[in-house]
Amino acid sequence: MDGVIDLKLWQMVSAYIFVVILLFIVKARGISREKEILISSIRMTIQLILTGYILIYLFNNSNPLYTIIVIAIMEIFAIYNIFKRSKTKLSKSLKRIIAISMIFGTLSSLIYFLLVVVNISPWYDPRYFIPIAGMLIGNSMTGISLGVTRLVDGMTSQRYLVESALMLGASPKIAVKEIVDNAFDSAILPTINSMVGMGIVFLPGMMTGQILSGTSPVTAIEYQITIMLGILGSVALTVILFVQLGYKTFFNDESQLIISDR
Results as ranks from 00 to 15, higher is better:
L110R: 13
Y112A: 04
Y112F: 13
Y112V: 14
V118R: 14
N119I: 04
N119R: 15
N119H: 14
S121Q: 12
S121V: 08
W123V: 10
W123H: 07
W123Q: 07
D125V: 08
P126K: 15
P126Q: 10
R127G: 00
I132V: 14
G134T: 02
G134Q: 03
G134R: 11
G134S: 07
M135A: 09
M135T: 09
L136M: 07
L136S: 00
L136P: 00
G138K: 14
M141K: 14
T142H: 08
S145W: 10
S145E: 02
S145L: 01
L146V: 14
G147I: 12
G147N: 08
T149F: 00
R150T: 04
V152N: 09
G154D: 07
G154P: 11
M155Y: 10
T156P: 06
T156K: 15
S157G: 01
Q158Y: 10
R159D: 00
R159M: 08
A165N: 10
L166P: 02
L168A: 01
G169N: 08
A170M: 08
A170P: 02
P172S: 10
P172W: 13
P172A: 04
K173D: 05
I174N: 09
A175T: 07
A175F: 00
A175N: 03
V176L: 06
V176I: 08
E178P: 10
I179H: 02
I179K: 05
A183C: 07
D185W: 14
S186Q: 11
S186N: 10
A187H: 07
A187W: 11
A187Y: 04
L189Q: 14
L189I: 13
P190K: 14
T191Q: 12
T191S: 10
I192D: 04
